[in-house]
Nucleic acid binder design. Structure first.
Lengths: 391, 391
DNA sequence: CAATAAATCATTTCAGTTGATTTATTCGAC
DNA sequence: GTCGAATAAATCAACTGAAATGATTTATTG
């Protein structure tokens, strides 16, 4: 029996119905902030009685909180329910080229706890040790409920980027057989999920970012490299290999020679273009001469706009979200330049997407990592996610 | 309340569970051909008892058929169930630039009845009249169960193609306010669904075409124009406006000037390149001098390969299916050339997709049209489709 | 006749629905 | 201003119906 089918085509029964409806209530509160039982009933199509039972149970479990009754309208006052931030916690692990961090996020996506480490190069075993330790430390802190699950946001196939990362090929091979998720799962006994880091950043924006996002959008994350994520029909889509929307490989014709977006628009490229060999981080190093930054902004925005145009020919997304670990002012001008560059492409027969700035910056990937178990356990859209080792 | 949410986030209950499980049984039989009750139970996770009840009901309704008991293995013989071809019928309407056809498909996607008409130009009202008449005629024929629903496969925004179609702009405007779906729905009282024609062709291949397709693929349909369709995670994805995967608008750098794929790879382009002004159809007109066909094949395959490469940078599809209304031999060489052209593009960091020939040819779009109500009524994946007028 | 597997039977479980009822408020008539 | 009508939220009690469970029947092979 094909495994995907076994998972995708499941029969329904009473307990699954109940599980689905509980997730549904949580999903509605997650999306709308606060709703009365009556509003939950009308939005879900469930009867008032069913909602009454569901909310009572969820409140007893501490997953949702009832607020002050709302008066001022005819009839009995309604009680607004919202997610209890302390209802559950999730651990997010983010591994990058220059740093890694482990966070604990709460039910509303707020980071409640964080451990970070920077390094010159991502030595596989050293990074793994840090992560394992940090997860243990964070999981042990008792100020929140024990974590429900762990998400890892990490670049796909890190071992292929040895050249650009500046670590010998042989040393990078350690990443190939790392099986970090399995190791953490074995250590903690919790379900562990892995996702491409840029996709995770996209998921963070979808779940905990701006509320005005359309049902379908492309998300670009400018990190040491550029990555992308896709939201289709309100769902994060990461494709059969988890690399959908990774438009870093998009070929861009730039000054004659075709190059990949990743070479043109990464912060890596900016760093390389600086004469003093400085290291850029999310906070420091950006006080560079304006012409240097400008040149990179022009190149990055131009090539990103090209990639966006190509993407829109296939996907008809309504918006593009621009984010990355850079100062907010830089992100703003990057987004502005991309928006300005888009009309230069031929959008006949397709829609030109709106350009929107992301809101999460540096934290996007680790919040996105923590968002994986959140979604897997509490939201309806992602009920089918499977942790490492389960397949 | 946002409508999409009302549809997307529905609560579950017993009757919905039952409806889902009935669809699930049908979906499993649709995908697997024939299964015993025990196999259905193991694949769905339902209990044997539940499957027993479900299959008995579906058999009584004539939707599925039990076959001869399979002997030869230990234990009680198992009865293989399969879909009853005559269990239901669906009407598919396909409107093109040169012809329209209305078909009746059965439960297995076979065309059981067909009415077609050719024309030099798609005069809006004349075509609409033909379609309305043909639907009435086909719906009246009593050799099958009355149709469950009607699907329409039609190019998006036909009115924008006046120039290429060769009909005055003013006359084409009739398509803009046609509301063909509403008219047919009003006439027949049946649910009517509309979908882009190339997307419909893709859906036909997904549901009734080759069985060896991966979960994620891109489908190119070479018609009078070129269109595309996308299947993501076993589901036809057509995006917020129904134009996802319509890669006809993809910009292609070809001999210096950037052009859209539609100009380079359409059968329209081939026709224009022929000196004798002949008209190409799915059967006739293809006996042209080899160099002329060759030139078009090279151009179409080259530009399609370019579009495929761009698409793969975003989407990581495992395969590309090539189909169109052309002789099978032409399709075969087109697919072969596309496959040969792909390695010329830079696929580093992404996967080079397999090139597969489609199987449905001329009939793909009308079968795909009939497949819409089939999916909407009987398959689990498409339970959320809404007919015209319901929104 | 034992083993095996499919399929069914009889009973139980439980989640949501339905329709009546309670609760808490605003609104309008006097 | 006070009181009853209207309104809306929320709950109660009884009912429904779908699937699960465990025992049983059926049909086959060995």
């Amino acid at each position: 029996m094909p495994e995907s089918e076994a998972l995708a085509l499941r029969g329904g029964n009473q307990s699954r119905t109940r599980a689905h409806n509980e997730r549904l209530v949580i999903t509605l509160l997650h999306r709308n902030g606060a709703l009365s039982r009556a509003e939950i009933a009308s939005r879900s199509g469930l009867s008032a009685q069913a909602v009454s039972v569901l909310t009572r149970k969820l409140e007893a479990e501490g997953l949702i909180l009832g607020g002050e009754p709302v008066r001022g309208r005819v009839g009995q006052p309604s009680i607004p329910f919202r997610l209890n931030p302390d209802g559950a916690s999730f651990i997010g692990v983010q591994v990058g080229r220059r740093s890694a961090q482990v966070v604990r996020g709460d039910m509303t996506g707020r980071i409640r706890d964080k451990v970070a480490r920077s390094y010159a190069h991502p030595e596989p075993e050293l990074v793994a040790e840090f992560v394992m330790d940090a997860v243990a430390v964070i999981a042990a802190r008792g100020d929140l409920r024990p974590a429900t699950g762990i998400g890892i946001a990490i670049p796909s196939e890190m071992w292929n980027w040895a050249g650009l990362i500046g670590l010998p090929e042989a040393r990078m091979q350690g990443w190939r057989d790392m099986r970090l998720a399995e190791r953490i799962a074995a250590e903690t006994g919790l379900p562990v999920y892995t996702r491409n880091d840029a996709t995770a950043a996209c998921g963070a924006e979808l779940m905990f970012g701006r509320a005005d996002l359309p049902a379908d959008f492309l998300h670009l994350y400018f990190g040491y490299f550029v990555g992308g994520g896709l939201v289709l029909d309100h769902r994060l889509y990461d494709g059969p290999t988890g690399n959908a929307g990774s438009i870093g490989s998009m070929p861009i014709g730039w000054q004659g020679r075709p190059r990949q977006l990743i070479e043109l628009a990464s912060i890596h490229a900016l760093e390389q273009s600086l004469p003093d060999g400085r290291v850029l981080t999310d906070e420091g190093g950006w006080d560079m001469p304006a012409p240097l930054l400008d040149r990179w902004l022009a190149q990055a925005a131009g090539s990103a706009a090209h990639a966006i145009a190509a993407c829109c020919a296939v996907l008809d997304v309504a918006a593009v979200v621009i984010d990355g670990w850079m100062p907010a002012t830089v992100r703003a001008s990057l987004a502005g330049r991309i928006e300005a560059a888009l009309p230069g492409f031929d959008f006949s027969g397709m829609r030109r997407p709106q350009v929107i700035e992301g809101t999460l910056g540096r934290a996007a990937r680790s919040i996105g990592a923590a968002a994986i178990p959140f979604g897997a356990h509490f939201l309806v859209d992602q009920a089918e996610l499977v942790p490492a080792g389960a397949g």
